[in-house]
Design a protein around this nucleic acid. Structure first.
Length: 945
RNA sequence: CGUCGAUUAGCUCAGAGGCAGAGCAUCCGCUUGAUAAGCGGAAGGUCCUUGGAUCGUUCCCAAGAUCGACGACCA
């Protein structure tokens, strides 16, 4: 800014004639960071959420059931975005005319909290102490998170949320366990499950992720022991050498001490190879792998016989370093992609290994399980007892080298299963666990859980649609659900197990209910202190309490029982209308909830599933709890404001990744300013307008006003449709274009003349204000689910003197009627705007030559084809207002042409039009006849613009 | 490794077998009666690449590249 400008402004002569200028206390700048907390306080004090419930009473209920965030650590951008999305869905359903409720919840049990407590107080605390510390920690975390969510403008039952650790919910969860037990889905068995040494527990499918890991890959020989059988299988009378090996390849040498079999594919061709290595004169390999293996081991060899894999079935070979035999079992899963075409089998440490050994009749008691829960071999294991399996790997390799059974060892990088919490490698480990069976058919003629769940997936509506095949595939392929965990901070699997037989107590069902009653009073702690004799009497001496807890996914997976039908039935319903979570919840909450509900109800607990992607930073990296690269939503609230964060969520297509950067936030803030300022214009120009008295009936409005209303109706229609599809980014895009193009770039610009210069209470001005009033009413309602704070601020400005319990934008709905009929208005004015664009462009050309400044300085002659000319002439004298020029003349011509010339008339001091009649009234020499009339007489009539 | 999706202006994204679009950002101008605002204009493109079908393709088909999601990677 230079000083000349400033002085010029200061010296600018003000007209003494009054104008109707905009006037409002609604500030142009949002100052959201400062102002929003006051609204939060206001909403809390006035109990806005419950006031809305009263207003919405009697409408159809619509329930979004909250997927509980884990009660650990501050909220991050991911959870914030998730909550905002939920809030926008709930509010949009509210505005659409439903009684849309929202009961937030928290997931409170489970390992992350228990691990926190272990870190803080050390391992080995008594169970009672662990539980009380965990409970206190979770309570603390819930409070922190709740504050963060409320600050985002999320409305809900915050003073009465659901907590999975509430004794009532813990008890209902045991009752849910009872239901699925009664239905016959629960069984106990030995099975390899995902096992984390750091957790000391089985893991759920959802808790496993893959990372790169370097292991030692070894080729290991199993020496011939049944030479006669082998010769016969290969169709030979006798082997040419007595000594030989069948060779396997593995990346997990630590599984070899548990090796109990070898797997061959029944249909593959296997060859007996004679080599030039005196120590290993004969080898058995898959025929297709010979060349690869010979080169790998630096040998030469020739095939002397071949047979199918199935011919070798049950022939036994010597374990590479223990004195025992491993028989050949056949398996279809053997491939020729890597290794030797022969796979070693450790039933305790591989799913396929386990299944194939079992199918050959191996009993659970025969399965070798040398690896303990902490990752060390049992002390009794020869050579390697007490070693961690990772430390043992190289030692096993060296041991085999010494024994002459090692063919090759090398570093091998591959992607390997890791615990998603500890980021440490996990293994499959056979343990006794409780399961929910996917394929058991509890009722004689009933469907399996898998079949029921697949049908439920089909009956569910997915947003976006690709969620359906995804969940379907997961259900179709998943193994049985491992329900048990070996932890302390969780809901007990409150079974009584027979000391000798391991059988459940015959009265298990009623005992579960008896335990539930106690837990309802005393929390899960009541199970710890329970003396079995209290429930079992004399029988207690034969039974022990099952020490396992339930998988936390069972906690959250049963909230449809423990919350929708348990702690909050009045505030919700079953089934919920929607579950809304990140796409990872297909294998998490969507999944676990589906299974439990199918076991209990035979259907999904939701009608619709909505999925969103993850928030990523500029580099496309995930912002996640465990990575610690989170951008605090609190910081955005404290600088730009929660409405900016909400607008970012709304304007992003959440079906993929949601990219967040400073530049993006800046752009969102720009969009916000544009919307806010447009709303401010509407407010400021209707400040002296009382809709109850001044509203002009739509039939009596100027045509352009009716056109603006038609555009508004179109906007409302399109936004409602987009909201119904949960496409918030479409809503914001439409509103933004409406504000910029239709209002700012056209309608409001044209309207200023009429608003400012016509008589303050004239029909012409009231017509414009009526349109602005309707547009404002429609827009504030459309924006409310997204810009909740701003919409409420607007609402309070427009309805002064009312407190939030009497008046809130959230008491309104989108059924607000924007009056009028579209007729031909949209088409007619589209063509008028096309001509206007040509006029504007022509004026710009003249302006570049310096002939005119303001468009009002221009005289325009439009040459146009007959039909368009007629259309333009229809507006008569008012055409110039559409162009914002001082005159506008129409001529017929072959094609559209615009002639622009500077006006030679005098500028009216008041309305700035250049007119011949300026000064025609001697009493008012500086203003035009139009202004004289508007100020002192009947004023001008405005039929069109 | 497999499946699916994406690739269009500096950024975010629309789009339709026939002249390549919007918002924002940039630059320029106007306005100073939306003023820490408003209006207008301009510039900006190999519509990822290659091949095919077509009178014609950014759009259809095929292959590839890059990115992403998911699945598998167990031996």
């Amino acid at each position: 800014m230079n000083t000349d400008n400033k002085s010029a402004k200061a010296e600018k002569p003000e007209t003494k004639y009054p104008l109707n200028l905009p006037d409002t206390p609604f500030p142009m700048r949002g100052d959201l960071a400062k102002r929003e907390p006051a609204w939060v306080e206001n909403w809390t004090q006035k109990k806005l959420y419950h006031a809305i419930r009263k207003v919405a009473k009697g409408r159809p209920r619509w329930v979004l059931h909250d997927g509980p965030p884990y009660a650990n650590s501050e909220i991050h951008m991911g959870t914030a975005m998730n909550k905002v999305l939920k809030d926008m869905v709930v509010k949009s359903k509210l505005m659409a005319g439903f009684d849309a409720t929202y009961v937030p919840g928290w997931d409170c049990h489970g390992m992350p909290i228990e691990i926190q407590i272990e870190k803080k107080f050390g391992k080995g605390l008594p169970t009672a102490a662990v539980q009380s510390k965990c409970r206190a920690h979770a309570t603390e975390q819930v409070d922190i998170q709740r504050k963060g969510f409320i600050r985002l403008g999320v409305l809900g039952e915050w003073e009465n949320p659901y907590l999975t650790m509430a004794p009532r919910n813990e008890a209902d969860e045991i009752r849910a366990l009872r239901k699925i037990y009664d239905a016959g889905y629960v069984f106990r068995g030995l099975k390899p499950v995902n096992w984390c040494f750091d957790c000391g527990s089985a893991l759920a499918e959802a808790e496993v992720e893959y990372q790169d890991k370097t292991d030692i890959a070894v080729d290991v020989g199993f020496a011939f022991r049944e030479q006669d059988k082998l010769a016969k299988a290969f169709g030979l009378s006798k082997l040419p050498h007595d000594k030989g090996f069948v060779v396997i390849w593995t990346t997990t040498p630590w599984t070899l001490p548990a090796n109990q079999a070898l797997n061959l594919h029944p249909e593959f061709d296997y060859a007996l190879v004679e080599t030039n290595d005196a120590a290993r004169p004969l080898l058995v390999l898959a025929k297709d792998r010979i060349a690869y293996c010979m080169e790998r081991w630096g040998m030469q060899g020739s095939v002397i016989a071949e047979c199918k894999g199935k011919a070798l079935e049950l022939i036994a070979f010597a374990h590479p370093f223990y004195d025992r035999l491993s028989p050949v079992y056949l398996g279809d899963y053997v491939t020729l992609d890597t290794g030797t075409g022969i796979v070693h089998s450790s039933p305790a440490y591989g799913v396929e290994d386990f299944l194939s050994c079992r199918s050959y009749g191996m009993k659970d008691a025969d399965v070798l399980t040398p690896v303990m829960g902490d990752g060390k071999y049992v002390a009794s294991l020869p050579e390697f007892g007490g070693l961690s399996i990772w430390d043992a790997n190289p030692k096993i390799v060296e041991h085999m080298r010494a024994k002459g059974t090692l063919f090759k060892d090398e570093k091998f990088q591959h992607s390997y299963m890791h615990c998603w919490r500890h980021r440490t490698p996990i293994i499959y480990r056979a343990t006794n666990q409780w399961f929910a069976g996917m394929d058991v058919k509890p009722k004689a003629d009933g469907a399996s859980l898998r079949e029921t769940a697949l049908a439920a997936v089909e009956a569910t509506q997915f947003f976006p649609a690709w969620g359906k095949p995804r969940l379907h595939a997961m259900i179709a392929n998943r193994p049985d659900w491992t329900l048990s965990r070996q932890r302390q901070w969780g809901v007990p699997m409150a079974f009584f197990v027979h000391k000798e037989t391991g059988e459940l107590h015959p009265r298990t069902s009623e005992l579960l209910e008896a335990v539930a009653k106690r837990v309802e009073q005393g929390g899960i702690e009541a199970w710890q202190t329970l003396d079995p004799a209290e429930l079992l009497g004399d029988d207690a001496k034969n039974y022990v309490k099952n020490p396992d807890t339930l998988d936390v996914w069972f906690d959250s997976g049963t909230t449809h029982e423990t919350v929708l039908r348990g702690s909050h039935p009045e505030q919700s319903k079953f089934p919920a209308d929607m579950y809304l979570e990140g796409s990872d919840q297909h294998r998490g909450w969507f999944h676990s909830s589906l299974l439990t509900s199918c076991m209990i109800n035979g259907r999904a607990p939701y009608n619709e599933l909505l999925t969103h992607g993850f928030v990523v930073d500029q580099n496309g990296r995930k912002m996640s709890k465990s990575l610690g690269n989170v951008v605090a939503p609190q910081k955005v609230c404290d600088t730009l404001g929660a409405d900016i964060l909400r607008l970012w969520v709304a304007s992003t297509d959440y079906s993929g990744e949601l990219t967040l950067s400073d530049e993006i936030l800046k752009r969102v803030a720009d969009t916000y300013r544009r919307m806010r300022n447009t709303l401010r214009f509407l407010i400021a120009n209707t400040a002296d307008f009382d809709a109850t008295k001044d509203l002009v009936a739509v039939e009596k409005m100027s045509e352009i006003d009716r056109y603006a209303l038609a555009l508004t109706r179109q906007l409302v229609r399109e936004c409602r449709e987009a909201y119904a599809r949960y496409e918030f980014h479409t809503v914001t895009q439409k509103i933004q274009v409406f504000c910029s193009e239709d209002l700012g770039g056209f309608y409001l610009d044209v309207l200023k003349d009429r608003l400012y210069t016509c008589g303050a209470t004239s029909h012409a001005r009231r017509s414009a204000q009526s349109a602005l009033h309707h547009i404002l009413q429609a827009l504030v309602r459309l924006l409310a689910p997204i810009l909740s704070f701003t919409a409420e601020e607007i609402w309070a400005t427009v309805n002064p003197g009312k407190t939030v319990d009497q008046s809130s934008v959230f008491f309104e709905t989108w059924d607000y009627v924007v009056p009028g009929d579209d007729g031909d208005l949209l088409a007619t004015w589209k063509s008028l705007r096309d001509v206007r664009a040509a006029v504007t462009k022509a004026i710009e050309t003249v302006r570049e030559q310096g002939a005119v400044g303001s468009s009002l300085q221009a005289k325009v002659v439009v040459e146009a084809p007959k039909e368009i000319a007629a259309q333009l002439r229809r507006l008569g004298e008012e055409l110039k207002f559409v162009f914002i020029t001082s005159t506008a003349e129409v001529k017929e011509g072959a094609e559209l042409k615009v002639h622009v010339a500077p006006s030679t008339a005098q500028k009216c001091e008041r309305c700035w039009h250049y007119r011949d009649d300026v000064g025609s009234n001697a009493e008012h020499p500086s203003i035009c006849g139009r202004c004289v009339s508007n100020l002192y007489a009947t004023g001008e009539a405005r039929a069109f613009a």
